[in-house]
Design a protein around this nucleic acid. Sequence first.
DNA 1: TCATCGATTGTTAGCGCTAACACTACTGCG
DNA 2: CGCAGTAGTGTTAGCGCTAACAATCGATGA
Lengths: 360, 360
Amino acid sequence: MTDVARLAGVSHQTVSRVLNNHPSVRPDTRERVLRAVTELSYRPNAMARGLASRRSRVLGVVSFDTILYGPASTLLGIERAARRAGYGVSIVALERVDRAGVLSAVDGLAAQGVDGVIIIAPQMAAAAALHSLPRGMPAVAVETGPEGVLPAVSVDQAAGATLAVRHLLELGHTTVWHVAGPGDWLEARDRVHGWRAALEEAGAPVPPVISGDWGARSGFTAGAALAGRREVTAVFTANDQMALGLLRALHERGVRVPDDISVVGFDDIPESEFMLPPLTTVRQDFDEVGRRSMAALLRLINSARRGGGPNGGGSHGGPDSRGPQVGESSEDGGEADEEVGASVVPPTLVVRRSTAPPRA
Amino acid sequence: MTDVARLAGVSHQTVSRVLNNHPSVRPDTRERVLRAVTELSYRPNAMARGLASRRSRVLGVVSFDTILYGPASTLLGIERAARRAGYGVSIVALERVDRAGVLSAVDGLAAQGVDGVIIIAPQMAAAAALHSLPRGMPAVAVETGPEGVLPAVSVDQAAGATLAVRHLLELGHTTVWHVAGPGDWLEARDRVHGWRAALEEAGAPVPPVISGDWGARSGFTAGAALAGRREVTAVFTANDQMALGLLRALHERGVRVPDDISVVGFDDIPESEFMLPPLTTVRQDFDEVGRRSMAALLRLINSARRGGGPNGGGSHGGPDSRGPQVGESSEDGGEADEEVGASVVPPTLVVRRSTAPPRA
DNA sequence: TCATCGATTGTTAGCGCTAACACTACTGCG
DNA sequence: CGCAGTAGTGTTAGCGCTAACAATCGATGA
């Protein structure tokens, strides 16, 4: 930096000012400095910057060690939003998702000097860790239900399930069966809740829940069980993979979809559009989740730095500081917003060809 | 740190020594310092550390913005290996994979202060960027073929394809058709090469390549085209997703697998085991890829620091400094090792139920 | 005309840590 | 008995940057 300063004929501090686009630098000075920067192909040292300014412009994401569509997409959504805001993203993929795992991951990230963390914690065990995070570390939870300790962003799972069920009921089905995800996943629970609520609201009978594990195999098993029962005309599976397995099982047994049984999935994975028949499913907007969690985290970081101010002016990196973005979904989620703030992204129903009215 | 030093009754330097487990500290002193650290729940400041020592203990991974099984698994493998070695992982997911994209990603990572980067660049366009990386940044390429400019780690795609083809030929098929991946992917090309080579080696006729795009739909299309031809008895698809589509198309048209046509995929995604019928496929060991690329990168980082020394003693972070781990695969890859070093991980064939001898 | 003010720039201190060297015991040896 | 050698520890300088304050300049208004 000293070299740049010398070449531009200014002090190193002026160089620093230009780099952080501080307002009061004369345009021609700025010009000169920038030219010197280019000429020397100078790159500021992130460590020194971080040390002096106490911010690293890197945030941490705690995810887990799997290639499930939801978590992976969420991670990508966050990365995209972070990059746009001028932040780097450091990840930790948990091997075991439990309290200790989450805690040590956050610790590791803290030791790495991240400005804040976003925790993708869709399982109960992980959510439990949220209570005992290190003080002073800005943190946002994603897909973790209303834990209340942290600002949380999630897709409204219950609403998605309701969407699916209503769609089927409106087609004329008397009830809808449900193949659920693993019981320790919050998303699985919420989908069950939404399903049950929609059924009850419509006065429809509530069949027993069939439990699965997100894998295609468990959908297959469920399908095998359901194929024989003539009273089953509509099934809502908690994700698309299980729907895939279910479709297979039905097909194998000569049960036609949607003629004999209608099927709705959840996630809208790339394959869904292409299943046989193309799957009606519930789409989650992971990009929006990424954007909102990023916005919430930035708010937290800034208020932590300014001792409580609401939203600091962004400096250097991000052209993208869309202010009112979180908390705008005022209509939905009946739960009283925790004071820490929760943001719920509405899912949408993608109607394809796996759903139809029941046989007359 | 000063506080810790005071509490332990030593100098701050001694505290530093303990933290970096420097050898010459008396056990009881170390003990005392550690106690003080715990009591004050002191956490070293990564920035300051990095600034003073010129290493961040974070490495960057350039990947791209998709949830394809291969790249995602590789990322996880790298993350796991890095964590084990005491390194953090910062990621950039490219939206467009081209020279400029890769370069700017590496730049961003460099600005973040990573000690080195691992580039997952399975496309030609990305591989092209490898030539113009910033000097002085230790870098390793993954799944990028023998570019020669960087140490590279990859699964031996051609060998995998050969495995698949030989398996089918040994079952008695006279030839094997191939549904390839997109032409700008190195892996797709290598699989084509391996397929063709194995066929030629056996003196079998080489049918025209059917091209796909990794997606299930293109496999379906290919399957639809192939289903009608009685001379087709064996198909090797360049990934499992396409195999899935292919199986569907065949099934829909009443072609039985494996009775009428045998199918082999590539990747061994979780669903493969469960397809109808369970898919014979080629498995890639992404964990091994992660370990090797990590080891190669560490070697590079250390030699850059010591001006050529082979392998420096690990400090603080990793209890796990498995020295001789890479380069041990002396038997495989016939290609002359580029002087920068290339490491090839052998794939394995997983035989399931989608392959059988042809109809007599 | 002179004090005042704001815009622009420079100067001075660290940020919290590690590296390099200096220093103090000891130990072993001739 | 004295010297080198070797733990173990302390002292001193920065690492490259930003924050806070000081200084300069021209323009403004009384």
